[in-house]
Design a protein around this nucleic acid. Structure first.
Lengths: 246, 246
DNA sequence: AAGTGGTCTAGACCACAGT
DNA sequence: CTGTGGTCTAGACCACTTA
């Protein structure tokens, strides 16, 4: 096999970039898919066949195909094979940054102002998110995040005292609940929802907007080992854009 | 150090699940990070050291650490080593589904209605997105997507005729521009932005909402080999939630 | 029962970035 | 130069799923 390459150094054009890197294999496979040679819904060759055809180890093919599967371009099933996704959705990475990072990335100085901190029964959606009865008191914290002393977004966050025994409602005078959580609670999982909502009176006031202004709302549930520890709603003014690059 | 492990076969509980799988290695490393044994910002042992300590091949350790790096838990740099991310943002996967899939996932029947299809100079934001002069005509298509014959969302999409030579403005009577693109143009990359906006008169009418209702707007730029081919704005009513699970 | 992808190994070489 | 992560190889065994 070595001898083969020694005597016939011709290689398929698509992978002449450098060598048998998994990126080259991925590019080759991807180009065959995009050219229509391997049509949507069809099976592509097995790893063994590809490895033979490309003259590389199967592990390398596997690495390339796994990457394509992660991107949603292909779908793999044991015993069945690898299929080109029929109508691929665009799968991408999304970083949900901490608000502090978001503000500092703008080149602005980060500021935090606590507005309210009360122990009271949660509103219905919060009770549902935290999976607690809606007559059990939870800690509701309201705060405004400032970029160069101007409102960037504001937040309501409910904290579940049963899941957070060492919760101290005085901790949030100067530190945001999210940062406190990051330092004190090993959050293992998070769930998000993004939606649109009209600014209510209090929220509008905090953001310096007219009531009824459309807001972008990012909801977040933090879980520790499957148990919800917090539910937050962050409100962003219309000028805000959540950017996602493929 | 080998001797230590040889004479005391006790292993940390976290990786007694089964064997030396990369998932077990990842779980072990993750638990050490979450327990604070390896603090944020600190260097963790090298791959060689971990492989020796865990009694597995370096490739297995590499697989585990690469996965953690993909999740943003750790950061790796050649020659310097692997560091625990100081203030990790939540990094997750996001599927931007085709509207058809979105509707059918609700168990509803998909419908599409073309509202307008005109060749005209693009509005300023569309010209910027498509990187064309704003006095050059582009094809603007407006449409409504229906779930069980009720408006699900509506859309404006600008198509760049210079990048799409075989563009046929009659193609969109029965087929949505996105599906036409998916079948006819190898889109290699996409950029998204999510924001909030008030419903204008025409949009409100199409969605059956009062003008001024807050809408969720998803903007999308499709690129082929770095060249923008389309720019779309999809408008969703307040009942819509974009859900993201970690 | 058989065929496919999923993974592990032990070793090797390379690319990159500090020193 | 040196040490770190990044990758490739050839082979092996396993897990899952369909027939």
């Amino acid at each position: 096999m070595n001898a083969h390459f020694t005597f016939s150094p011709e290689l398929p054009a698509a992978r002449r970039t450098r060598m048998n890197t998994w990126q080259a294999i991925r590019a080759d496979v991807l180009s065959r898919i995009q050219s229509g040679e391997w049509a949507p819904g069809a099976l592509i060759p097995t790893e063994h066949e590809l490895a033979r055809a490309m003259g590389c180890a199967r592990a390398t093919v596997n690495r390339a195909l796994r990457d394509l599967a992660d991107s949603g371009i292909i779908q793999r099933r044991r015993k069945v094979g690898t299929r080109v996704t029929a109508r691929p959705s665009r799968r991408t990475r999304l970083d949900m940054p901490a608000v502090r990072d978001e503000i500092e990335a703008l080149g602005a100085s980060y500021g935090y102002r606590l507005t309210e901190s009360v122990m009271e029964p949660p509103m219905e959606s919060a009770a549902r998110a935290l999976q607690v009865a809606d007559d059990r008191p939870t800690l509701l914290v309201r705060a405004v995040y400032l970029a160069d002393d101007r409102p960037h977004c504001c937040e309501m966050i409910w904290l579940n005292p049963r899941a957070l025994p060492d919760l101290d409602r005085l901790a949030f005078e100067t530190q945001s609940p999210h940062e406190w959580l990051a330092q004190n609670v090993p959050v293992t999982q998070a769930q998000f929802a993004i939606l649109s909502e009209s600014a209510s009176g209090a929220t509008a006031l905090q953001l310096g907007l007219a009531p009824g202004t459309p807001l972008l709302v990012i909801e977040r549930i933090n879980l520790r080992d499957g148990v919800p520890v917090s539910f937050s709603r962050q409100f962003y003014p219309p000028r805000y854009r959540l950017n996602i690059n493929d």
